[in-house]
Design a protein around this nucleic acid. Structure first.
Lengths: 344, 344
DNA sequence: TTGTACGCGTTATCAC
DNA sequence: GTGATAACGCGTACAA
């Protein structure tokens, strides 16, 4: 431990620690020359104010937490990219927490983070239907929380989402327009509000086209590829759907594997569309039609809201009420490709 | 700010702060009953020891930094996944820093992190050929550093890599075996040691097959898809290679786009193979042959080394020298798919 | 313009 | 088994 502290630096300069401190904070008046001298010496000795100490003093960690289900996932990694960008611009640091869709871990993270370690939290929740009233306990504390994409409706916090209902409606309608009549809806977790919204869009699109909503066509899947392949093989064999609407990317991927295995021609025998952030959707065999969410922008928006609540950015309106929670809805893009078109 | 501190908690219990502190640290002897009473009250008042204060006291942040070029990237996001896993198991927190391949940012991060904010650093460097002697300055400090995948050879630190040379040799040999004679090598940054290793494997494989190494067949690319497409269109038109060895995934992706545009049949007209962590390589059109790196495991290894150096894990050997830097080499897998096979 | 002194919240050391 | 106290490193009110 050969790092130097403010006291030692002050001694070397024959100055008091307060003066040295001032040189870094820029605050109070300080002689231009002494300041330069201090900074020069600091550079030479490679001194930097200890953050733990500074943070303890002004009760700010200059750090935010990002809690997500997983990171090896196009959507979340891009969102984090956006968050990091904004955080860095504001001089903040970003801590990552992965729940792996484990509710207990989520609770543990949330609890641990309310001890001054971070100034705010951005999160996308696990899908567990458990009681999440535990969060209320923390909502009363001063640390702001922003949800993005996956959220708990019953928690009062700022939220960044996309127009899931409209997108789902449009995607389902697209399948119907292309001639599908037996469209399965693949979902991992029906309890998530986002899952509900997407399913509602699917339902309503069916209805408005005069097609019945059949409970059996809603397929519960998991996060395990192997498991999903099992499930879908059964579904494709028994139900013989002519359309697949996957609420998340990995379910479309599983569908592709199964179709390839079963020699089903995607686009012809069965049309597939899904929510996805896959940048190479057009390179798949066949190119995959997607509802593309603005993942990066969602991260940026979520972070901006958080920093606004942290007072780092001027309020959007003249309103200075820090407790107002913002709701932002971004638009997804429906990108039609071969998987829902078939042979041209 | 309605969070409570140890003093207030102590008052409410008619105890001293030391006793309360002990209840949490488990340390010294403490009456079972008082301890329980304290923990109960703590739970009720939702008290948690302030980490800034604890950290300041014992000079540990229980936090590590992960510096990577980007996160919206299969390889890095999986590696981070592995790192987070190990960190969490050790009760550590993970901070993410993205350089976006900007050398200045890398330097800035490294500098900022040496003020007690983190206890250790895991990083994959930018490709810049600049002078990185600045790192030496910090190497002397006590905070441990572990490189993974992309590293600076001249910096003495622990390193986790894969058998890049062997993989490259094998991949190139595979192309040659499949009949390729004009194989281009696509690279983003030739200055990286990893780039050099991979190119050497390519070179040596050519040589051992009696093929000449032609400087013109080494194509410098960038990180911009649009730009790479431009470059590759020219290359494919003028040089007319029958084989492509992409040193990173995104260059293979760009090649796919270009081949699709130019109506080149991948696998037949031109064979493509690359380093990649793409889980859906087999769903591409055509399925992409890859050298698959154990990204997750690399993250795990890097983190384990770091924690070993932090003294969190018992040393591997009986050797207690903390300054010994470890070198770990993991094996990549060569996975042959249609992109290098052509029509069966 | 600079120096002095205190407190941020915790925990280890020492005394009782 | 418990309480008082000092110190971690910094930043600011106050004094000079």
């Amino acid at each position: 431990m050969d790092s130097i502290n403010i006291k030692q630096l002050a001694e070397k300069l024959n100055l008091s620690t307060s003066t040295v401190s001032r040189a870094f904070r820029g605050h109070s008046d300080i002689n231009k020359e002494t300041k330069e001298k201090i900074l020069a010496m600091a550079r030479e000795l490679n001194y930097q104010p200890n953050h733990m100490a500074s943070n303890l003093r002004d009760k700010k960690s200059r750090t935010i937490a990002v809690i997500v289900p997983e990171i090896a996932n196009n959507f979340f990694s891009r969102a984090i990219n956006g968050i990091e960008r904004v955080a860095r611009d504001n001089g903040y640091h970003v801590q990552i927490y992965l729940t792996n869709d484990d509710f207990d871990r989520e609770v543990a993270f949330i609890s641990q983070l309310h001890n001054g370690r971070v100034d705010g939290i951005i999160m996308s929740v696990t899908g567990e239907a458990n009681d999440h009233s535990y969060m209320h306990k923390f909502r009363k504390k001063s640390i702001p929380l922003v949800f993005f994409d996956r959220m708990y409706d019953d928690i009062n916090a700022s939220k960044v989402s996309t127009n899931d209902y409209d997108s789902s409606f449009a995607a389902t309608k697209h399948l119907i327009d292309k001639g599908c009549t037996r469209i399965v809806y693949l979902v991992v977790n029906k309890n998530l509000s986002i899952g509900k919204m997407r399913m509602q869009g699917y339902k309503d699109a069916l209805e408005s086209a005069g097609l019945p909503f059949v409970e059996n066509l809603v397929i519960d899947c998991s996060n395990e590829l192997i498991h999903n392949i099992d499930i879908l093989e059964g579904v494709f064999r028994v139900i013989k759907p002519d359309g697949v609407f996957a609420s998340v990317e990995r379910l479309a991927i599983a569908s592709y594997y199964v179709c390839h295995n079963m020699n089903l021609k995607i686009g012809d025998d069965i049309k597939i569309i899904c929510f996805s952030s896959l940048e190479i959707a057009s390179l798949l065999n066949p190119p995959l039609s997607t509802i593309t969410q603005p993942a990066y922008d969602m991260g940026v928006e979520a972070a901006k809201i958080l920093f606004r609540q942290l007072g780092m950015i001027e309020e959007r309106t003249g309103n200075n009420d820090e407790n107002v929670s913002e709701q932002v809805v971004l638009q997804s893009d429906l990108v039609i490709r071969q998987s829902t078109l078939g042979l041209k």
